[in-house]
Simulated scan of single mutants.
Amino acid sequence: MASASAALRKSQTAPLPPSDSLSDEDFLRIAELVGGHTGIRLPAGKRTMVEGRIRKRMRATGQSSFADYCHYVFEDGGLATEVTHMIDAVTTNKTDFFREPEHFDVLRRHIVPDCLSRSRGGKAALKVWSAAASNGAEAYTIAMVLADMASRERRFDFSILGTDISTDILAQARRAVYPADFVAPVPAEMQRRYLMHSRDPAAREVRIVPELRRHVGFMHLNLMDDSYAVDGDVDAIFLRNVLIYFDKPTQVAVVGRLLRHLRPGGYLLLGHSESMIGASLRLKQLAPSVFKLV
């Protein structure tokens, strides 16, 4: 009896045979759907990755093959409820605390002092937007840097908005809980000030302290939308390592829309792997992948 139960459990959890794969037509349909909603290109080289991630959605919807899943989505009315899950599954969310640390040096040494020098008296209120926030590591890194400066200078307050297209990853960002190893890049002093360790040593998790979380909010946003429900007086926008997934016209369009939300003299920070795009845009390069609206 025990062996029969074990066999049943094994059959329920066993992976699908390698022979089950997306047809050319179904891969193209998924690529066009994701590209149309997000601007992200899914070339043929991403096919294995797409299959691996869609397989989880296939099981969640009770479908037994990729063909059945795609029929459910595209012909049987499943698209309305499945498109968000599909985008969550396929989009890549790679980020780290203090990733590309030179940007946070620029934030500390140049951007914040420049913004404060242009404030009109009283306590300044800086606004920073992490436009592809993923799991929140970038937004909370910015918050740590600004909180550290504010505690010493007491000349400004700050708020940070993190946005992303993935609803699943935004839920993780709001929870602000990370594996202890994941926060290794955070300087030791900042770890002591801004991280709480789990009461269960076996959990090996940390959480951002409430005092810092109060400065950070998260919102769902699709960079492909024609307009963004974001304030128009942002001091700095971080959009790093995202444009590489878009074609050139989409890159220019997205950056153009972002610039509508910067204050005069505001800053745009791109990933180090992303070259300057759109020579006609009103941007002056100040440092590698750091630009000022002029």
Results as ranks from 00 to 15, higher is better:
Ala173Met: 11
Ala173His: 08
Ala173Lys: 07
Arg174Glu: 13
Arg174Lys: 13
Arg175Pro: 04
Arg175Leu: 15
Arg175Asp: 12
Ala176His: 05
Ala176Asn: 07
Ala176Thr: 06
Ala176Ser: 14
Val177Ser: 03
Val177Leu: 03
Tyr178Gly: 10
Tyr178Arg: 02
Tyr178Ile: 13
Pro179Trp: 03
Pro179Ile: 02
Pro179Gln: 05
Ala180Thr: 05
Phe182Thr: 12
Val183Ser: 11
Val183Trp: 02
Val183Ala: 11
Val186Met: 10
Ala188Asp: 11
Ala188Asn: 08
Met190Trp: 11
Arg192Ile: 05
Arg193Phe: 07
Met196Arg: 15
Met196Ser: 12
His197Pro: 00
Ser198Asn: 11
Arg199Ala: 14
Arg199Trp: 12
Asp200Ala: 14
Asp200Asn: 12
Ala202Gly: 13
Ala203Val: 02
Ala203Lys: 09
Arg204Asn: 02
Glu205Ser: 06
Glu205Pro: 07
Arg207Gly: 12
Pro210Ser: 02
Arg214Ala: 03
Arg214Val: 08
His215Phe: 14
Val216His: 08
Val216Asp: 01
Val216Cys: 08
His220Ser: 05
His220Ala: 06
Asn222His: 06
Asn222Val: 06
Leu223Arg: 03
Leu223Trp: 08
Asp225Leu: 03
Ser227Tyr: 14
Ser227Asp: 15
Tyr228Gly: 03
Val230Lys: 12
Asp233His: 14
Val234Leu: 12
Ala236Arg: 07
Ala236Cys: 15
Ala236Ile: 03
Ile237Asn: 06
Phe238Tyr: 15
Phe238Ser: 00
Leu239Gln: 04
Leu239Tyr: 00
Leu239Pro: 02
Arg240Gly: 07
Arg240Thr: 00
Arg240Tyr: 04
Arg240Pro: 01
Asn241Gln: 09
Asn241Ala: 01
Val242Trp: 04
Leu243Cys: 05
Ile244His: 07
Ile244Gly: 01
Tyr245Ala: 03
Tyr245Trp: 11
Phe246Tyr: 13
Phe246Pro: 08
Lys248Phe: 10
Pro249Tyr: 08
Pro249Thr: 09
Gln251Ser: 06
Val252Phe: 09
Val252Asn: 08
Val254Asn: 05
Gly256Arg: 10
Gly256Cys: 02
Arg257Met: 00
Arg257Cys: 00
Leu258Arg: 00
Leu259Glu: 09
Arg260Cys: 01
His261Val: 01
Leu262Thr: 10
Arg263Lys: 14
Arg263Pro: 05
Gly265Cys: 13
Gly266Ser: 04
Tyr267Pro: 08
Leu268Arg: 01
Leu268Cys: 09
Leu269Lys: 02
Ser273Ala: 15
Ser273Asn: 06
Ser275Val: 12
Ile277Val: 15
Ile277His: 07
Gly278Cys: 09
Leu281His: 11
Leu281Ala: 11
Arg282Asn: 14
Gln285Ile: 01
Leu286Arg: 04
Ala287Asp: 11
Val290Pro: 06
Val290Ile: 10
Val290Tyr: 07
Lys292Ile: 11
